[in-house]
């Protein structure tokens, strides 16, 4: 059974069609990239798969359940772009701790099991030394690691990451790719929005390329032997992915 299944989905934002009849499926244990230029709809697709944007047509199933009935949020971990955290003075541990909330009820306290998961996730991404530092004092790569740890704290089977390499140095990208490779080996399914394959080439099983809100058929950059980057498309909507 596919972990993610999008069947002929359309997303329209502000009257503009952003995604057009996108069909996608991701199998357990796969590492898949969503590739495309700015404005190609890759971030919109990820957000639509998470239910953050309404669908104007089609259906999304996560773990076999239609999105509006999906309740097993602890099975997936979302890693948004790192500018998304709005509490700069919160510590790494505080940010990572929110990751276990998908399996906690309101008024329920963080118990031993959750605490162990939080510590484990911080250790997994190598931020033990920074755990009690405010997230604003961290470098871009470290902030990205903190957000990955937050997603890992819920022990998800599926990680969905939105441009984890945006604004981080090449060597940091390589070390993040190494971390993601390790997670894939642990059996986690990865769906990653990327601007270019870069350091992730060796980790990925395949890539889905988007252009103008459609999936490009038969293009799989991971198996292409040339090193070209995806072509910079002029943004047909005149704005950046509508974020």
């Amino acid at each position: 059974m596919a972990i993610i299944e999008a069947d002929d989905i359309n997303v329209t934002l502000g009257g503009l069609p952003i995604l057009r009849s996108v069909t996608l499926s991701v199998e357990p244990g796969e590492a898949v990239a969503l590739l495309g230029a700015n404005g190609s709809g890759k971030t919109t697709l990820m957000r639509a798969l998470l239910g953050l944007y309404p669908l104007s047509h089609g259906e999304v199933k996560l773990f076999g359940t239609e999105l509006s009935h999906f309740r097993q949020w602890n099975r997936l971990g979302y890693v948004p772009q790192r500018a998304s955290v709005k509490v700069p003075q919160a510590t790494v541990r505080e940010i990572v701790s929110t990751g276990v909330l998908s399996s906690l009820k309101p008024f329920q306290h963080i118990g031993k099991r959750e605490k162990a998961r939080i510590d484990g996730a911080i250790e997994e991404v190598g931020l033990e030394q920074k755990a009690n530092q405010p997230i604003k004092e961290l470098s871009g790569g470290q902030q990205q690691r903190a957000l990955i740890a937050r997603a890992l704290a819920g022990h998800p089977e599926l990680l969905m990451m939105d441009e984890p390499f945006a604004g981080v140095d090449l060597d940091v990208q390589a070390s993040l790719a190494e971390l993601l490779g390790k997670l894939k080996k642990q059996g986690k399914t990865l769906l990653i929005v990327l601007h270019e394959l870069g350091a992730m080439r060796s980790v990925l099983d395949r890539a889905v390329s988007l252009r103008g809100g459609r999936v490009l058929a038969g293009v799989d950059e991971t198996h292409a032997h040339h090193e070209t980057e995806p072509v910079e498309e002029p943004d047909i909507f005149g704005r950046e992915g509508l974020e």
Binding site: L52, W73, P80, S84, V85, V87, I95, L101, S102, R150
Partner: peptide
């Protein structure tokens, strides 16, 4: 308060 979209994906 810290990340609305992420909170949504926590259910």
């Amino acid at each position: 308060s810290s990340d609305e979209d992420y909170a949504h994906t926590l259910g």
